[in-house]
Design a protein around this nucleic acid. Structure first.
Length: 423
RNA sequence: GCGGGCGUCGCCAAGUGGUUAAGGCAGCGGCUUGUGGCGCCGCUAUUCGGGGGUUCGAAUCCCCUCGCUCGCCCCA
């Protein structure tokens, strides 16, 4: 009889961790709300073509990382590997893009069939924002600021914002052609991975971690030199905006985001405290995507934050807890029912109440009360039940286990009791 | 898909060929059936991820397999 375990790369979040997740989600939600972003929820499962068309056939995500299968109607379905394509699809499908600029946020699980390692799972979670119909660079600055502020507000340090401009789609095409020619001249000197990429995705070679390839690339044409007047201007304005907002950044001309749809602004926020997978947040502008998915020419910009990576960075920053305020010790037929009633009422007043339903001895119940960290114990036994009272006892009081920290309270005056408990 | 490390109770582990597989934490029960935190006592792995082999004898050696983990590729 072998134990059934979770699928590789699929991770359970236990109570100890879900609390922190909730805290982060709450703070993020607040931020989005204040920034005027509205939540959108899309299905986890989409038609495969959405991603192959939206993300790009040549990308690794589409080429080898998708969870794709046929459903019973023989349609090719894929568990979403990222959020943007789905959001665009939904926005188009429901005509959101005909209603002026849209500021949207989303969150939830994404799926990528990769070998798990630190900071990488097959099911992982992202929160992200997408901003449609605002072509101005101010949107870029605003969106980056939201990400930066969120991470800062969560108390993270050691973050670096890396920034690059990929230019317009035009600029990129020109650069790409020249780069391929240049690379082909030095084909023999490239590592095998890069050789394969010359045709399929040459820009990614710039990001190669192979040291020899990197040294060759020192001489390569740089994208920056191919940027049009207008693109350069955009990039300038963005940098100035960030300076004004006092958001530090580092230019990284080799930052080429993996997905096809990016243009102009590309950025990543990395942390020195993560392992090999150091990017917490990645995003950029994607003015061509909506059109590529059959919609009107619409500009877009957004980012996604990896929740797991974010939470790894949080360490013990949070101390919020769900330790009970009150532990309800009870025994006896009448008392047990009363305990249930009292628990319900105190909960309605906003207290965290743990009710002991074990029926075991008072000694045992107190032991548990103490261990769960509750501040108060309320005791209901036969005596209390008959006398319509509750015995109140402060736990974790030092040494003295006499009755000095015990107190009788009327069972009918719960408001009075509540006032006492929170004081 | 390719490399490295690892797999003994819920958790942390000792054990590296020889009778019944240490110990700690947690859990449960008792000392104490209306009063906890401390203490003491007891219980909790026919079995060492799984399968095969070597051997009189294996958790310990060999082979295969599965899983975890870190890294490569790539990304959040």
């Amino acid at each position: 009889m072998n134990q059934i375990k979770s699928l590789r790369g699929m991770v359970d979040l236990l109570p100890e961790q879900t609390q922190r997740w909730q805290e982060v989600e709450l703070i993020a939600r607040e931020q989005f709300k204040r920034a005027g972003f509205k939540e959108i929820r899309t299905p986890l499962l989409e038609v495969t073509e959405l991603f192959s068309r939206g993300i790009g056939e040549a990308t690794d995500v589409v080429g080898k990382e998708m969870y794709t299968f046929s459903d019973r109607g023989n349609r090719s379905c894929t568990l979403r590997p990222e959020g943007t394509a789905s959001v665009v699809r939904a926005a188009l499908e429901h005509g959101l893009l005909n209603q002026g600029p849209q500021r949207l946020w989303y969150g939830g699980p994404m799926f990528r069939y990769e070998r798990p390692q630190a900071g990488r799972q097959r099911q992982f979670h992202q929160i992200g924002v997408e901003c449609f119909g605002i072509n101005s660079t101010r949107a870029d600055a605003e969106v980056i600021a939201i990400a930066w502020d969120l991470l800062k507000q969560l108390g993270l340090n050691g973050l670096v914002l890396e920034l690059n401009s990929l230019g317009s789609l035009e600029d990129r095409r020109r650069y790409r052609n020249d780069l391929v020619v240049w690379l082909l001249d030095r084909f023999e000197q490239l590592d095998t991975d890069s050789q394969q990429r010359v045709q399929s995705n040459p820009l990614r070679i710039l990001d190669s971690k192979n040291p020899q390839t990197q040294s060759i690339l020192m001489e390569a044409p740089t994208l920056n030199n191919y940027l049009s007047e207008e693109s350069l201007e955009r990039f300038e304005v963005l940098q100035q905006s960030l300076e004004t907002l006092e958001i530090p950044f580092k230019l990284n001309s080799r930052l080429v985001r993996g997905l096809d749809y990016y243009c102009h602004t590309a950025f990543e926020i990395k942390s020195e405290y993560l392992g090999a997978q150091s990017t917490v947040c990645g995003g950029g502008r994607y003015d061509g995507l909506v059109e590529q998915l059959g919609g009107p020419n619409t500009s877009g910009i957004g980012w996604a934050i990896g929740m797991e990576r974010l939470i790894m960075l949080l360490g013990d920053v949070f101390s919020g807890s769900t330790t009970p305020d009150v532990y309800l010790v009870n025994q006896g037929k009448l008392a047990e029912i009363q305990a249930l009633v009292v628990a319900r009422k105190l909960r309605a007043l906003g207290l965290i109440v743990e009710l002991d339903s074990s029926g075991s001895s008072f000694g045992k119940q107190f032991k548990r009360a103490n261990r769960c960290g509750a501040f108060w114990a309320i005791v209901i036994g036969d005596d209390e039940a008959k006398g319509e009272v509750l015995t109140l006892k402060k736990l974790h009081s030092n040494e003295d286990s006499t009755t000095s920290n015990e107190l009788k309270v009327s069972a009918s005056d719960l408001d009075g009791l509540f006032a006492l408990l929170v004081s």
